[in-house]
């Protein structure tokens, strides 16, 4: 923006008037925690998908907070499956719509959390991808089983403290690295795989729009911060999501038929990993000042370095 432009009052600038804000397709009044990243992610996805969408949701936070009996926050056909089979249920919905000849101009979305996708539901997800159903699978990755009280999952990052990977004398938190779920999915050779983040909502919505325009199985993994499980003040949700990307710990990219086609470059905006870790209570033990803590931090820096190299983020 040049100086002249910033001096004029914004209200005097001539611009095309936008239509008034419409109500979201994930209705207000759901019981998500204050500052919930998953609610934000689901809202952004549904607003792009539109009302002509069939949604199957796995058990998890998303299902619990959006549908407390006798209410539902979804303003579209929605079904709760079991923990492991939201992909299979969505595949069935798609097959049913084709059999009835009602598959024109409708979307079918299956969704689940990181546990329901990467650990429990990976079998059904793999089956759905293999059979080539025209379904978009959305994984909301909050990096642990938040609904049952923060147990570690396959997507919990290295050294994060959860109730089943606590910090103690002989432990620095979660021992394993984050599972490369988009890589596993892309290995099925499906038309579109993407990772996104609520830190970049416009990018997220563009990816959902693109995915829905493609015929065949699609997969999007959305990184959604959780104030309760990650232990940070609620107003930082979007800030933390952005920092995860700018530090290189969460790469966001797109893959088509198993090939990397596009990634979000960090370049000069790259931040040290400490900026991201320091804000969260689950990494607090890494800043105790002990010499071992410095070693653990170095390992996390290596993970960021590896991601930047692998996905060409620099």
């Amino acid at each position: 923006m040049n100086n002249q432009e910033s001096n004029t009052k914004p209200k005097e600038r001539k611009r095309k008037e936008k239509p008034p804000v419409e109500e979201s397709l994930l209705a207000m009044g759901h019981r998500a925690c204050t500052g919930c990243g998953e609610a934000l992610g689901a809202k952004l996805v549904m607003d792009v998908a539109g009302p002509k969408t069939y949604v199957a949701t796995a058990t998890g936070c998303l299902e619990v907070f959006s549908t407390p009996f006798p209410e539902s926050a979804w303003r579209m056909p929605w079904i709760h499956s079991l923990f492991e089979n939201s992909a299979a249920v969505a595949a069935g919905i798609e097959a049913g719509l084709i059999a009835q000849g009602r598959d024109k101009d409708v979307n079918v979305i299956a969704q689940g959390g990181d546990g329901g996708t990467a650990d429990i539901g990976i079998g059904c997800l793999s089956g759905m991808l293999e059979r080539g159903h025209n379904v978009l699978y959305v994984c909301y990755d909050n990096e642990a089983y938040m609904n049952t009280g923060v147990q570690r999952s396959g997507l919990t990052p290295f050294d994060a403290r959860t109730t089943t990977s606590p910090y103690g004398k002989k432990s620095w938190g979660n021992k394993t690295e984050k599972k490369n779920l988009p890589g596993i999915v892309a290995a099925h050779n499906i038309p579109y795989v993407a990772t996104a983040s609520v830190g970049y909502p416009f990018d997220l919505q563009r990816k959902v729009k693109k995915a829905l325009s493609i015929k065949g199985p699609k997969f999007i993994q959305i990184h959604v911060p959780c104030p309760l499980g990650w232990v940070y003040p609620a107003h930082l949700t979007v800030e933390i999501a952005k920092l995860a990307i700018l530090t290189g710990l969460i790469p966001i990219y797109e893959m088509e038929y198993g090939e990397l086609t596009r990634s979000r470059k960090i370049g000069k905006n790259r931040k040290p990993v400490e900026e991201y870790l320091k804000l969260q209570g689950r990494f607090k033990h890494l800043f105790s000042g002990k010499p071992e803590a410095e070693e653990e931090l170095e390992k996390i820096r290596q993970i960021a370095e590896k991601n930047i190299k692998k996905f060409g983020l620099a």
Partner: peptide, 29 residues
């Protein structure tokens, strides 16, 4: 960025729906 979809309005005038706003403060941040 409102997780509850509780901000409404148009043309430079936006306001939250105080019946539903949980006060997370993401908008202010």
């Amino acid at each position: 960025v409102c997780p509850d979809g509780a901000v409404f309005g148009s043309n430079y005038i936006y306001d939250p729906d105080y019946d539903y706003c949980k006060g997370c403060g993401i908008c202010a941040q």
